[in-house]
Design a protein around this nucleic acid. Structure first.
Lengths: 216, 216, 216, 216
DNA sequence: CATGAATGAGGATTCATTCAT
DNA sequence: AATGAATGAATCCTCATTCAT
């Protein structure tokens, strides 16, 4: 009896493990497909049927993994922001010159965008508050958005305290400016069709952020 | 006879003038209502019925003035951009120190946004390429967008040629940076709920654009 | 006083006469325009606005003369059938060989169609029971239709009684056959684009009706 | 393994076969319902909701099988004309006396109409050029219409060449006459409410076509 | 669980008709 | 009585979601 039970237990747990993996793979495939389709068509024009087709599953299957179209969208954001946050946090944690780390943060962000394709570019450029998002994702998205922002602001504060940046401006204001310059780059990059040169531009962004446009 | 004829002519033209005015008033009321509703709900969630209700007319009436929902949206953009372009062009034409005029351009833009409410703020922040816009307005919108941008770029080029700005960066690149910092301000302003302090921030934006964040 | 009254009465009746005439002219213009538009577009695709434009009046004016789109349509039919009935009745009343008069009836009908254009051709070809008509005009239309038919059937009965036609077939059946051959001609004529040769074909129709297609 | 695979393959194909059948059954049910509703109300007054209700499905389901109301209508025509053409072609191909086959063609046509109900009767009587059809189906419909017509004309030509019909009339003209007499029967039959006696009348039609109405 | 067809609420648009001028 | 703009009921079609297999 015990043996049987154990065997059964074992069998079951193997099965469960397989199932778990299968589920994860499906989920990943769906998110990946959805990311492509949303990036290409936008939220409203992307149909659940399109996403299902792109993922190679039936429409109904999507609902075994996500309870609604909106949840699919939110899950892409979450997944991406999680990855991004991890990468950025790692850079911040390295220590050393705050300005060097700040520049590395930009490089990391741009690398992430180049890899994840237009979906995130669009999302970030819109501050995650696009048309649709504004209505329904505000809360959870803001949290992550701010967590990422907080990393950068932390560095800026460090830099201010180290006397590396102007003392007559609020570090948060400086953060907004850096974000603005950065967004402008990303915006222009999306307009150019997301060519693989974004990372290279981080130096320009940083230079202009630090020294401004004035002759001197 | 002549009198009668003249009177008739007059009467008719008065009627026509009244009708003309009425039509213009309706059109304006609809655009105004639509601007409010689009700004509040976004393009997709704004229903024609909502706009009609906000304007105080029947749904069918909208179609006596615009052939589709999309045309309503596009008309708001056009109207606003026309106004904005006029105001900015006037500033640019004044002559004098390019940098002073550039700062005035910013003040004018911010004043326009404060007056026209969230619809345009959202539009501009998204670079006019929001979700929906991206799909269908690209051409005409880009033209106006670029026309506005061109004004700023013209000033920047003047400033560069006058030796007032760094010579090691393309003026267009400087323009993108200024637009980025500016957008960041607008973005933050919308997040704060569009309080009436945007114009006042133009000085900050301009200072950071010119001198950067670096201590020196 | 009396004079005044009389004058007033006179004045009024003149005015009324003018008004009457004006009304009749408007009515006629509208029916004529409607006939053209219905003939060109069919009942459903012909919009009241189209008819008004064709008649050179405002849409609302139509409703001063007809209470609905359907009434406009019905009025065209009525007007035409009245005219046609008058012409046919005149032929029938002439007396003489029933078969000669029958042939003349055909000539008259064809002449009417050539003059009234495609509207009636279409109407007759469809037996007056077209798509829409079937639903709403059955009664009044049937009455007129049958009145016209009755003229022909009367002649056929006369001819049968005179021993000029086969006695082994019901005169009504013969009438249906003649109508069928005739309709086929009209149908083909409409297909050819209503060229001015319909009247000339009445002899062929009549020959085949009388002698059939057999060699003997 | 092979067995399993085969079984799986079998299972899948069975499923697919069932699905295929189900789809066909739905399609058929919709066309059948639509035929009834169109026949009863005409194209414009027949609402998609009516058709769906008649077919016992939801309105949206119609669009899983046809992309528009017009396609539903066109599909009914196509289906019916295909069937009819097949039946008529079979009769024509039999060989033997052309006149006998011609009469059989009529019997077959009438049988088809009795079975398919008023929808086709209306359609044929109108020469397939009803109100709506005239606007949008002309091409494809004309092709089939003429194909059917061509069968009859072929037989008539055969009969003429065999000296069985009058030589002083164009066979095509004789065809038009036969069609006219036939249409008149169908027209009267529809007026009588489509009772089950149409087929029986083919002899009358044929007799009158051959020998005419004259006493002798 | 995957599947894919059924569902039906929802919305843009049309147009006959009304009505204030 | 003409005008022409306002009206809003009516309808086709879409597509996120459900569910039987």
């Amino acid at each position: 009896m015990a043996t049987t039970t154990r065997r059964k237990g074992k069998t079951r747990s193997v099965r469960e493990a397989v199932r778990e993996e299968t589920r994860a793979a499906y989920r990943e495939a769906i998110l990946s497909a959805a990311s492509e389709v949303f990036g290409r068509l936008g939220f409203h024009d992307a149909k659940m049927a399109d996403i299902a087709a792109e993922a190679g599953v039936a429409a109904g299957t999507l609902y075994n993994y996500f309870s609604s179209k909106e949840e699919v969208f939110a899950s892409i954001l979450e997944r991406g922001q999680e990855q991004l946050f991890g990468a950025l946090a790692e850079v911040v944690a390295r220590g050393g010159d705050p300005l060097d780390r700040l520049q590395e943060v930009l490089r990391t962000l741009y690398g992430f965008l180049e890899r994840s394709g237009p979906f995130f570019a669009v999302y970030l450029r819109q501050g995650g508050l696009a048309e649709w998002t504004r209505q329904r994702l505000r809360e959870s998205e803001d949290r992550t958005f701010h967590r990422n922002l907080a990393l950068m602001e932390g560095l800026l504060r460090e830099a201010c305290e180290a006397g590396l940046l102007r003392g007559d401006r609020d570090p948060d204001e400086l953060g907004a400016v850096l974000a603005g310059i950065s967004d402008a780059q990303i915006f222009a990059w999306v307009r150019r069709g997301c060519p693989p040169d974004l990372t290279a531009r981080s130096a320009v962004v940083f230079d202009l952020f630090l020294h401004g446009a004035s002759r001197r």
